[in-house]
Nucleic acid binder design. Structure first.
Lengths: 338, 338
DNA sequence: CCCCATTACGTAGCACGTAACAATG
DNA sequence: CATTGTTACGTGCTACGTAATGGGG
């Protein structure tokens, strides 16, 4: 049994059982992979993949089990590499982060900027995607951290650590009648709404609030991207509800925010990492820069809590900062366009 | 990084950093191992072993960490092989057991005999050693099961499952004045004692009982082997205290047992297995043959309980059989000498 | 002075690539 | 018929063994 063989079956299983595609993504030849898989199967005496003729159709029951172990092994191999790097040069290495749109666009930039300055030898790699997508990346070991407001708690393999809370804010053109008022849910619902798609930007909490009051707002447009929402608010399509993170008083000075935080329950931005991840010194530092209350000690504790309730207990005594206050601490809003 | 390289560093670390000895035990050449270790260290950029001149002197801090992960990886590789075998032929495979002298000699034979009959395709391998030694073998992944009365609970990596309890018995020549009596501790202590060495056969419990009554018995001979004790009892050196398991009414008909079970707290024979072991179907069967109350279901439960107290709770409601009663169930005393 | 790890070197095996082939949808 | 996996085959690398070298205790 060779590590490569395990790598191959794992990769094939994560490429829809398409050996050709796998070969491409690994920059190797397709027959090579085929053969190694065969060799492994011969050695083990079990087929990992079921074939119909010349196509891999599905994973056998034995394969399920083997692939799971193979994944664990491969992740441990990565851990060994991390450990080695940590000892050889604790300031060099790789950090991969997956984040949702809003967090990647509005919350992470200043942190990333500071991090790059402090750790120029760390190769940074970022991905952006939907909550489920990035949570899965973290759970699979594809990225070190997932940064999202929702979804992380659905993956049992992830340690989810709360970073800060933020509220939705109402966004209207400067001339809008709601400017300067403190509207109720009913008043808001009199206008067409432009906001996030379900599963993005805390949309669920908006729906909860309206539903709880028996109100059915007229949502005329939904998007995953706050900038798109702003654009439609500017066009007069309706009033927007976006994350407070997404409003920039300079760039968006033609729009006005109306405080509606008391109407909706706040959302909590989280960092998620796979249990068993070897956390490098600079990773602890990254987390602490993003969420100063998440000290190295606390994070280490978190990784030892193996179930959700223990984690909740660990963090229950923390007073989470609000996004707006946190900004001041970081000192600037980096990543602002133009 | 290759699996062999991980195997090599792990083996070297477990052979007192002696590469030559390691090479011999692995039936390979010593330069081969040396080179592979070097290659691994070069690739990782860290030394696993510290050298003084041409000798491996100790494991580096980085090495500690790496070796630990390497061990986990190698065990998972074994698991994959087990899984594969389970699916290809659930009646073939390997079972390795380490047991203490008494259990190997008196408790296991009928179980082993039955097992061999039922699973002729399973290659059985047994080791005998002291409690600590065998517990360590199980914890290292060298054997599937450790069978012992003590020591298993000291290894956090082991699931310890209670199998049956047994008491010490007093053993005297047929003509001895204690025959037919139910002596007190004081009366026993009037005679020279021949019994187990500390750490063997529940000796600790004997000492506890005497100490608790403020009695200092005259222990004239200690051994790890019940047969040795019997021999000295026959010679008239003193009265023996051995495990009830070790007395055979046929072979030992020249000796007489005196019930002293009410004087000492009973010992519990345990099976220990490493957490994370992949338990094959025949292994479940083996356990259940040895200890009928340890059903597959219960054993699976046990492997999910990650700490001692949860384990104790799981087993607290069981009524453990006594060795003597258990014998009847198995039906015969196999392994009795000619 | 013995033991042991490293270096040097030759070889056999194997992983991987290219090309041709077969089977599936 | 296009896509995909398997078979065939050649080659370059490398793991491993033997022999020689050099340091330590």
């Amino acid at each position: 049994m060779k590590l490569q063989q395990l790598r191959y079956i794992w990769e094939v299983a994560h490429h829809d059982l398409n050996v050709s595609a796998t070969a491409q993504s690994l920059y190797t030849s397709q027959p090579g992979i085929s053969k190694q898989i065969r060799l492994l199967e011969d050695e083990l005496g079990v087929e990992v993949f079921a074939r119909s003729g010349k196509h891999l159709t599905r994973v056998t029951p034995a394969g399920e089990s083997i692939l799971e172990k193979a994944g664990e092994i491969l992740r441990k191999v990565e851990t060994i590499k991390q450990v080695a790097q940590e000892f050889s040069n604790e300031r060099a290495g790789t950090l991969t982060i997956a984040a949702t749109h809003s967090l990647a666009r509005y919350a992470l930039p200043p942190v990333i900027r500071a991090f790059r300055e402090r750790y120029p030898e760390v190769r940074l790699r970022m991905y952006q995607g939907g909550p489920m997508q990035i949570a899965e990346m973290a759970a699979d070991g594809g990225v070190d951290f997932a940064v999202a407001t929702e979804g992380l708690e659905l993956f049992g393999d992830l340690v989810a650590m709360p970073c800060f809370w933020w509220s939705p804010t109402l966004l209207v053109p400067a001339s809008h009648p709601l400017v300067g008022r403190t509207p109720s849910l009913e008043e808001i619902a009199e206008y067409p709404l432009v906001t996030y798609m379900l599963g993005h930007g805390g949309r669920a909490r908006l729906d909860d609030a309206f539903m709880h009051h028996g109100i059915a707002p007229d949502v005329v447009f939904t998007a995953t991207d706050s900038e798109v929402i702003k654009t439609y608010v500017r066009l007069g399509t309706g009033v927007g509800i976006i994350s407070e993170m997404a409003y920039d008083s300079v760039v968006d000075r033609d729009l006005v925010t109306v405080d509606v935080s008391r109407l909706f329950s706040p959302s909590v931005a989280m960092i998620g990492a796979r249990y068993g991840t070897f956390v490098r010194a600079y990773m602890f530092d990254f987390i602490e820069t993003f969420a100063p209350h998440l000290t190295r000690e606390l994070v280490e504790q978190a990784f030892l809590r193996r179930n959700r309730s223990e984690l909740v207990e660990l963090f229950s005594e923390l007073e989470l900062p609000r996004h707006a206050d946190r900004l001041a601490a970081v000192g600037e809003v980096a990543g602002r366009p133009g």
